[in-house]
């Protein structure tokens, strides 16, 4: 565990890119989700003039509820797919950079499963970090943009539990995506013959 933590620290820049990919994707999805949470929370407390202001702000309610439209769903799925592709790409490069290290681990008696585990643990940390920052960014942006249109009720009825759920959901999504993205590169790395891995230039 300490090994993976160390290597995140050292390869900070590369990890940052992977994490940033996650942050952006999760921020987008969390923005949509937390926006509806907030609107629903305000709506139940809103008088007529406030309701009008919300609708004038360009938000559409269906049966007095705000929810994701098919368009939103597609955008969200698309952004998550782009995110996974980005992660696979970044992780493949990260793995290539570390062939020699992997070869050394194997010479010292590491099993393939150990190599896979290192990458999974790292990806998990990156996922949590990306999920946390992404959710926070998404929630802040949606809150600010709604507050801009409807004023202070946005803060007064701010749905704390709903937002917490969005955050937890963001963390979960990010960790899953990150793990999904790293599985293939990790398997590639683990299956190499040590001699082949050691031959690569650093």
């Amino acid at each position: 565990m300490k090994i993976s933590f160390n290597s995140i620290k050292v390869r900070f820049f590369r990890s940052l890119i992977t994490t940033l990919t996650l942050t952006l994707a999760i921020a987008f999805v969390a923005y949509i989700r937390s926006g509806y949470e907030l609107l629903n929370a305000i709506w139940t407390h809103a008088d007529l003039s406030l309701q009008e202001r919300i609708l004038a702000g360009g938000y559409e309610a269906v049966d007095g509820r705000f929810g994701t439209s098919p368009k939103d769903t597609w955008l969200a799925i698309l952004s998550l797919i782009v995110c996974v592709v980005g992660i696979v790409n970044a992780q493949l490069m990260a793995v290539t950079e570390r062939f020699r290290e992997i070869g050394t681990f194997k010479c010292l008696g590491a099993l393939n499963s150990f190599v896979v585990r290192i990458f999974l643990v790292e990806a998990f940390y990156q996922g949590l970090l990306g999920g946390l920052s992404g959710s926070v960014v998404g929630i802040v942006v949606s809150t600010v943009s709604i507050a801009w249109k409807v004023g202070w009720p946005a803060f007064r009825w701010w749905p704390f539990t709903g937002m917490l759920l969005t955050l937890g959901w963001g963390l979960f999504m990010a960790a899953s995506l990150s793990l999904l993205g790293v599985i293939y590169p990790a398997l590639v790395a683990a299956r190499m013959q040590p001699a082949v891995a050691l031959r690569t230039e650093q």
Partner: peptide, 26 residues
């Protein structure tokens, strides 16, 4: 098998390389 091979590399043989191959982050 893979497990015995790892055991062999771990216990039976010590490797020294021209390029040292230490783990840089440790």
């Amino acid at each position: 098998d893979a497990y015995e091979l790892a055991w062999l590399r771990c216990r039976k043989i010590g490797y020294i390389f021209q390029t040292f191959n230490l783990i840089q982050v440790m």
